[in-house]
Amino acid sequence: MRITCPFCGERELGEFTYLGDAKPQRPAADAGEDAVYNYVYLRDNIAGVMSEHWYHGGGCRAWLKVTRNTLTHEISAVEAAAGAGAAKVGA
């Protein structure tokens, strides 16, 4: 598999680490135990197109959101995580 990192270009799978489903959002501090439980443990196991977190540890260390078909391994989109890349000075 090859992933096109927005910073580094098309690179080989061995440079990346898989984390998993990118859909769940970390709940706010006051969201309560059930919300955090869902966030930590509940995952869809999708046979098809899925949004996933990948880490380019063998390259720029960016966390990426990769849209991948789990049946064909076809990657249709790669975007950097919101906080990847340069510091948000003045943001």
Partner: peptide, 13 residues
Amino acid sequence: EFCRQVLFPELDV
């Protein structure tokens, strides 16, 4: 890096 980039992108760090 996950915390910084994905969970807390609003932090300047």
